[in-house]
Protein backbone atom coordinates (compact mmCIF):
# COMPACT_ATOMS: atom_id res chain seq x y z
CA UNK A 1 0.00 0.00 0.00
CA UNK A 2 1.34 3.42 -0.95
CA UNK A 3 -0.10 6.53 0.60
CA UNK A 4 1.73 9.88 0.35
CA UNK A 5 0.35 13.30 1.23
CA UNK A 6 2.18 16.36 -0.13
CA UNK A 7 0.98 19.67 1.29
CA UNK A 8 2.70 21.67 -1.47
CA UNK A 9 1.13 19.67 -4.26
CA UNK A 10 2.16 22.32 -6.77
CA UNK A 11 5.78 21.09 -6.53
CA UNK A 12 4.74 17.80 -8.13
CA UNK A 13 3.08 19.62 -11.02
CA UNK A 14 6.16 21.83 -11.57
CA UNK A 15 8.41 18.76 -11.68
CA UNK A 16 6.20 16.95 -14.20
CA UNK A 17 5.82 20.10 -16.34
CA UNK A 18 9.60 20.41 -16.36
CA UNK A 19 10.25 16.94 -17.73
CA UNK A 20 7.17 15.97 -19.77
CA UNK A 21 8.56 17.42 -23.03
CA UNK A 22 11.85 15.54 -22.68
CA UNK A 23 10.48 12.18 -21.56
CA UNK A 24 7.12 10.78 -22.59
CA UNK A 25 6.76 7.70 -20.37
CA UNK A 26 8.67 7.00 -17.17
CA UNK A 27 8.70 4.81 -14.10
CA UNK A 28 8.19 6.60 -10.81
CA UNK A 29 9.95 4.44 -8.24
CA UNK A 30 8.68 4.66 -4.68
CA UNK A 31 10.46 3.26 -1.66
CA UNK A 32 10.80 4.18 2.01
CA UNK A 33 13.25 6.91 0.94
CA UNK A 34 10.65 8.68 -1.20
CA UNK A 35 9.88 9.14 -4.91
CA UNK A 36 12.51 8.80 -7.63
CA UNK A 37 12.31 9.19 -11.37
CA UNK A 38 15.21 8.43 -13.67
CA UNK A 39 14.77 8.51 -17.41
CA UNK A 40 16.59 9.37 -20.60
CA UNK A 41 15.06 11.53 -23.28
CA UNK A 42 13.95 9.70 -26.39
CA UNK A 43 17.27 10.36 -28.17
CA UNK A 44 19.30 9.03 -25.19
CA UNK A 45 21.32 12.24 -25.16
CA UNK A 46 20.10 13.66 -21.86
CA UNK A 47 19.20 12.03 -18.56
CA UNK A 48 16.76 13.20 -15.90
CA UNK A 49 17.10 12.18 -12.27
CA UNK A 50 14.50 13.42 -9.80
CA UNK A 51 14.24 12.59 -6.10
CA UNK A 52 11.57 13.74 -3.67
CA UNK A 53 12.42 12.66 -0.12
CA UNK A 54 9.85 10.84 2.04
CA UNK A 55 10.17 13.54 4.72
CA UNK A 56 8.85 16.09 2.23
CA UNK A 57 5.44 14.44 2.68
CA UNK A 58 3.19 15.24 5.61
CA UNK A 59 2.20 11.57 5.62
CA UNK A 60 4.17 8.85 3.85
CA UNK A 61 3.45 5.13 3.89
CA UNK A 62 5.11 2.69 1.49
CA UNK A 63 4.73 -0.89 2.61
CA UNK A 64 7.03 -2.19 -0.08
CA UNK A 65 9.00 -0.62 -2.98
CA UNK A 66 6.99 -0.19 -6.15
CA UNK A 67 7.51 1.14 -9.64
CA UNK A 68 4.65 3.04 -11.27
CA UNK A 69 4.89 3.36 -15.03
CA UNK A 70 3.12 6.46 -16.29
CA UNK A 71 2.63 8.60 -19.33
CA UNK A 72 3.98 11.96 -18.16
CA UNK A 73 1.64 13.78 -20.52
CA UNK A 74 -1.34 12.10 -18.82
CA UNK A 75 0.12 12.74 -15.38
CA UNK A 76 0.50 16.42 -16.32
CA UNK A 77 -3.17 16.52 -17.42
CA UNK A 78 -4.26 15.13 -14.05
CA UNK A 79 -2.04 17.48 -12.04
CA UNK A 80 -3.34 20.43 -14.07
CA UNK A 81 -6.71 19.73 -12.42
CA UNK A 82 -5.25 20.51 -8.98
CA UNK A 83 -5.50 23.96 -7.48
CA UNK A 84 -2.14 25.65 -7.00
CA UNK A 85 -2.57 25.51 -3.20
CA UNK A 86 -4.15 22.05 -3.09
CA UNK A 87 -2.84 19.24 -0.93
CA UNK A 88 -2.09 16.25 -3.17
CA UNK A 89 -2.36 12.69 -1.87
CA UNK A 90 -1.21 9.72 -3.94
CA UNK A 91 -2.60 6.24 -3.23
CA UNK A 92 -1.79 2.93 -4.89
CA UNK A 93 -2.24 -0.73 -3.97
CA UNK A 94 0.79 -2.97 -4.05
CA UNK A 95 -0.51 -5.13 -6.87
CA UNK A 96 -2.64 -2.38 -8.40
CA UNK A 97 -2.56 -1.21 -11.95
CA UNK A 98 -3.83 2.25 -11.14
CA UNK A 99 -2.76 5.18 -8.97
CA UNK A 100 -5.21 7.63 -7.42
CA UNK A 101 -4.54 11.33 -6.94
CA UNK A 102 -6.65 13.19 -4.42
CA UNK A 103 -6.68 16.99 -4.42
CA UNK A 104 -7.92 18.86 -1.35
CA UNK A 105 -8.35 22.63 -1.26
CA UNK A 106 -6.64 24.32 1.71
CA UNK A 107 -10.05 24.99 3.31
CA UNK A 108 -10.91 21.34 2.62
CA UNK A 109 -14.17 22.51 1.10
CA UNK A 110 -13.35 20.88 -2.24
CA UNK A 111 -12.02 17.37 -2.74
CA UNK A 112 -11.44 15.67 -6.08
CA UNK A 113 -9.86 12.38 -7.05
CA UNK A 114 -8.39 11.16 -10.33
CA UNK A 115 -7.44 7.60 -11.11
CA UNK A 116 -4.63 7.08 -13.61
CA UNK A 117 -3.91 3.78 -15.34
CA UNK A 118 -0.37 2.51 -14.81
CA UNK A 119 1.75 1.21 -17.70
CA UNK A 120 4.47 -1.41 -17.97
CA UNK A 121 7.59 0.49 -18.95
CA UNK A 122 10.88 -1.32 -19.13
CA UNK A 123 13.54 1.30 -18.63
CA UNK A 124 17.25 0.68 -18.23
CA UNK A 125 18.48 2.14 -14.97
CA UNK A 126 21.81 3.96 -15.19
CA UNK A 127 24.34 4.25 -12.38
CA UNK A 128 25.26 7.92 -12.01
CA UNK A 129 28.67 8.12 -10.34
CA UNK A 130 29.33 10.83 -7.76
CA UNK A 131 31.65 13.29 -9.48
CA UNK A 132 34.02 15.80 -7.94
CA UNK A 133 33.38 18.57 -10.48
CA UNK A 134 36.08 21.06 -11.59
CA UNK A 135 33.60 23.93 -11.68
CA UNK A 136 30.24 24.44 -9.99
CA UNK A 137 28.26 27.56 -10.94
CA UNK A 138 25.19 28.52 -8.92
CA UNK A 139 23.26 31.29 -10.65
CA UNK A 140 19.73 32.76 -10.78
CA UNK A 141 17.50 30.25 -12.57
CA UNK A 142 15.77 33.04 -14.51
CA UNK A 143 19.13 34.30 -15.76
CA UNK A 144 20.09 30.84 -17.03
CA UNK A 145 16.71 30.45 -18.78
CA UNK A 146 17.10 33.84 -20.45
CA UNK A 147 20.63 33.09 -21.67
CA UNK A 148 19.48 29.77 -23.17
CA UNK A 149 16.57 31.47 -24.89
CA UNK A 150 18.59 34.42 -26.19
CA UNK A 151 21.52 32.35 -27.45
CA UNK A 152 19.18 29.80 -29.09
CA UNK A 153 18.17 32.56 -31.49
CA UNK A 154 21.81 32.92 -32.60
CA UNK A 155 23.26 29.38 -32.66
CA UNK A 156 22.55 25.77 -31.80
CA UNK A 157 25.59 24.98 -29.65
CA UNK A 158 27.00 26.94 -26.73
CA UNK A 159 30.46 26.92 -25.17
CA UNK A 160 30.15 27.36 -21.39
CA UNK A 161 33.42 28.55 -19.94
CA UNK A 162 33.83 28.81 -16.16
CA UNK A 163 36.68 30.82 -14.69
CA UNK A 164 37.19 32.37 -11.26
CA UNK A 165 35.73 35.70 -12.48
CA UNK A 166 32.58 34.38 -14.00
CA UNK A 167 30.86 32.07 -16.43
CA UNK A 168 30.74 32.86 -20.14
CA UNK A 169 28.23 31.49 -22.65
CA UNK A 170 29.33 31.74 -26.30
CA UNK A 171 27.48 30.77 -29.45
CA UNK A 172 27.73 31.47 -33.14
CA UNK A 173 25.60 30.80 -36.20
CA UNK A 174 24.57 32.26 -39.54
CA UNK A 175 23.29 35.36 -37.74
CA UNK A 176 26.64 36.01 -36.11
CA UNK A 177 28.16 35.38 -32.69
CA UNK A 178 27.07 36.13 -29.13
CA UNK A 179 28.78 36.12 -25.72
CA UNK A 180 27.07 36.45 -22.37
CA UNK A 181 29.23 36.69 -19.27
CA UNK A 182 27.74 36.39 -15.79
CA UNK A 183 30.22 37.55 -13.21
CA UNK A 184 30.66 36.04 -9.77
CA UNK A 185 28.47 38.08 -7.43
CA UNK A 186 28.42 36.91 -3.85
CA UNK A 187 27.44 40.27 -2.35
CA UNK A 188 24.05 40.90 -4.00
CA UNK A 189 21.51 42.06 -1.37
CA UNK A 190 18.99 39.44 -2.40
CA UNK A 191 20.35 35.89 -2.20
CA UNK A 192 18.44 34.91 -5.32
CA UNK A 193 20.48 37.45 -7.33
CA UNK A 194 23.82 35.93 -6.32
CA UNK A 195 26.08 34.01 -8.68
CA UNK A 196 28.57 31.78 -6.91
CA UNK A 197 31.39 29.95 -8.68
CA UNK A 198 33.27 27.16 -6.95
CA UNK A 199 36.28 26.55 -9.18
CA UNK A 200 38.93 23.87 -8.83
CA UNK A 201 40.20 24.57 -12.32
CA UNK A 202 38.83 26.51 -15.31
CA UNK A 203 36.74 24.42 -17.66
CA UNK A 204 35.04 25.06 -21.01
CA UNK A 205 32.63 22.60 -22.63
CA UNK A 206 30.36 22.68 -25.69
CA UNK A 207 26.70 21.67 -25.46
CA UNK A 208 23.60 21.50 -27.64
CA UNK A 209 21.45 24.51 -26.72
CA UNK A 210 18.25 22.63 -27.50
CA UNK A 211 18.68 20.43 -24.44
CA UNK A 212 19.96 23.16 -22.11
CA UNK A 213 16.91 25.24 -23.07
CA UNK A 214 14.63 22.30 -22.40
CA UNK A 215 16.13 21.90 -18.90
CA UNK A 216 15.16 25.52 -18.20
CA UNK A 217 11.52 24.41 -18.12
CA UNK A 218 12.31 23.60 -14.49
CA UNK A 219 12.82 27.31 -13.72
CA UNK A 220 9.50 27.68 -11.81
CA UNK A 221 10.83 25.12 -9.30
CA UNK A 222 13.69 27.11 -7.82
CA UNK A 223 15.30 30.54 -7.59
CA UNK A 224 18.73 29.09 -8.49
CA UNK A 225 20.17 26.56 -10.89
CA UNK A 226 23.54 24.88 -10.40
CA UNK A 227 25.73 23.91 -13.36
CA UNK A 228 28.44 21.40 -12.48
CA UNK A 229 31.13 20.74 -15.07
CA UNK A 230 34.27 18.69 -15.55
CA UNK A 231 36.22 18.17 -18.75
CA UNK A 232 34.78 15.47 -21.01
CA UNK A 233 32.00 14.56 -18.57
CA UNK A 234 28.28 15.33 -18.80
CA UNK A 235 27.20 18.63 -17.26
CA UNK A 236 24.79 18.34 -14.33
CA UNK A 237 22.09 21.03 -14.35
CA UNK A 238 20.41 20.90 -10.94
CA UNK A 239 17.29 22.55 -9.53
CA UNK A 240 16.56 22.07 -5.83
CA UNK A 241 12.95 21.13 -5.07
CA UNK A 242 12.89 23.44 -2.06
CA UNK A 243 14.34 21.37 0.78
CA UNK A 244 12.50 18.27 -0.33
CA UNK A 245 14.77 16.93 -3.03
CA UNK A 246 16.21 17.73 -6.44
CA UNK A 247 15.64 17.60 -10.17
CA UNK A 248 18.88 16.94 -12.08
CA UNK A 249 19.52 16.94 -15.82
CA UNK A 250 22.65 15.46 -17.39
CA UNK A 251 23.92 16.25 -20.88
CA UNK A 252 27.06 14.95 -22.54
CA UNK A 253 29.38 17.63 -23.99
CA UNK A 254 29.85 17.72 -27.73
CA UNK A 255 33.19 16.30 -28.74
CA UNK A 256 35.53 18.84 -30.30
CA UNK A 257 37.11 17.61 -33.51
Amino acid sequence: MLEARLVQGSMLRKVVDAVKDLVSDANIDVSSSGFSLQAMDTSHVSLIAMHLRADAFEHFRCDRPMSMGMSLANLAKVLKCAGSDDIVTLKANDDGDTVTFMFESPKEDRVSDFELKLMDIDSEHLGIPDTDYCATVTMPAGEYARICKDLSSIGDTVVISATKDGVKFTTSGDVGTANVTVRQNTTADKKEDQTIIDLKEPVALTFALRYLTSFAKATPLATHVTLSMTRELPVMVEYAIQDMGHLRFYLAPKIED
Binding site: L126, G127, D156, T157, A208, A252, K254
Partner: peptide
Protein backbone atom coordinates in the same frame (compact mmCIF):
# COMPACT_ATOMS: atom_id res chain seq x y z
CA UNK B 1 27.66 20.10 -36.38
CA UNK B 2 29.89 18.52 -33.72
CA UNK B 3 29.12 14.89 -32.84
CA UNK B 4 26.88 14.46 -29.79
CA UNK B 5 27.79 11.37 -27.77
CA UNK B 6 24.88 9.50 -26.15
CA UNK B 7 24.75 9.46 -22.36
CA UNK B 8 24.91 5.71 -21.68
CA UNK B 9 28.57 5.84 -22.77
CA UNK B 10 29.22 7.85 -19.60
CA UNK B 11 27.02 6.07 -17.09
CA UNK B 12 27.09 2.40 -16.23
CA UNK B 13 23.80 0.62 -16.79
CA UNK B 14 22.95 -1.08 -13.50
Amino acid sequence: ALPQPPLPSYFTSE
